[in-house]
Amino acid sequence: MNGPRAEAPPAVSRRRALGSVVAGTFGAAAVASMPNAQAAPARAQQSAPSGTYRIDLHAHFLPPDYRAALLDHGHLTIGGYPTPQWSPEAAVAFMDYYGIQAQALSVSDPGVSFLTGKEASDMARYCNTYAAGLLRSNPARFGAFAVLPMPDIAASITESIYALDELHLDGVILLSAYDGVYLGDPRFEPLMIALNQRNAYVFVHPAAIPDAAKPKLPLPDFLEEFTFDTTRAATMMMVTGMTQRYPNIRFQLAHAGGTVPFLSWRISVASQTVLGELWPQDLPKPSVLDMKNQISRFYYDTALSGSAAAMAGVLAVTNRDHIVFGSDWPFSALTLPQSGSHDPAPGLSDIFDADQRMEVEHHNPLRQLPRLAAAVNS
């Protein structure tokens, strides 16, 4: 685990995304205008573990035919970020440089939902079979979450059974919503039954909101909208009872749960407001304590959230054993340290010591993915 470091992987050969420009411009202006921006002293940064030990549960891949199909259908950006290049070799170089022992790969938004019918099913099978090949050829470096041909529920059940039972992938990835229908909706119940029967690990990733349904702001979706959509999905899964009905499914929320930790109290008191009086008779009416319990049962990844502020929020709603490491690579390439640091998330040391970082970045992820754990530890 303490082998030599690789050279820095090549930078993304594209212009900086609009989001990084906007975030840099507006972010600097906002901080400069805050009268108390320097009022709270920062906690002294602690040492991080050394070596190649991290297990990355939020990492994306774009197999060749999948990326070509995205571009052919006009998906030149994903969430406002230019659709990146990806290869197994580049992934290994990235992992070696940033001390990542293994990545659980997944297809990001829009999944295969830009296709329909047999084309969607065939593309999902292609991506999952491609991932299974990586697991066979390099089982200690790669895991994978299966993409499903959503919103076709019947086809998605078939593909989830094949991916989990036959290809032995480590879980599945679901987007926060499909065609504007959020997880938690009753039409997803048959799929949840199949996943619950298999004790599946489910990575919930945000989806881009249709242009007609979001504010007209000069900001890319990945900057803010993605976090809000994760929150909408998690809330709907809780208030409709989905997370109660399927306790064998472990749900990982991307990007530290979006805004779920910050809004946890507001979400939990919903049943005490007028909303509680209008609660459907066929759904269990959640209590404050029950909602707190459901929020605490989610798993929260550190992708694009490696800061004391984000992690303190997560620790306020769950235990540290429900936090897992995520890099969001290759979409996070422009945000990663490029000045010789081999730590992909140095901000985690503002709140975690070395032993705690080892728990979050290594032990917690492996506890959830037994196949990958066995491969890594063999």
Rank of each mutant, 00 (worst) to 15 (best):
L336D: 02
D343P: 03
F331C: 13
Q356K: 08
H322Y: 06
S332E: 10
M358Y: 11
M291T: 12
G306M: 05
L289F: 11
D353Y: 04
T335H: 11
E277H: 12
T335Q: 13
S332C: 14
D355A: 12
F331P: 03
P280R: 13
Y300I: 02
P337F: 01
R320A: 08
H322E: 08
M311Q: 09
S287H: 10
N319R: 13
G306C: 08
L336Y: 02
N293E: 13
V314L: 03
S305V: 05
W329F: 13
Y300K: 08
E361K: 00
N319A: 14
R297A: 14
D282T: 12
E277S: 13
S305A: 15
A333C: 11
H342I: 08
D353C: 07
A312P: 02
L334H: 11
F352H: 02
Y300Q: 07
A354I: 03
Y300R: 04
P284W: 10
H362L: 09
S339N: 15
G306W: 02
M291P: 03
D343M: 05
A308C: 08
A309P: 00
L336F: 05
A345C: 11
H362C: 10
A303L: 05
G313W: 02
L283N: 07
D290H: 13
V324A: 08
M311F: 00
G347V: 06
R357G: 04
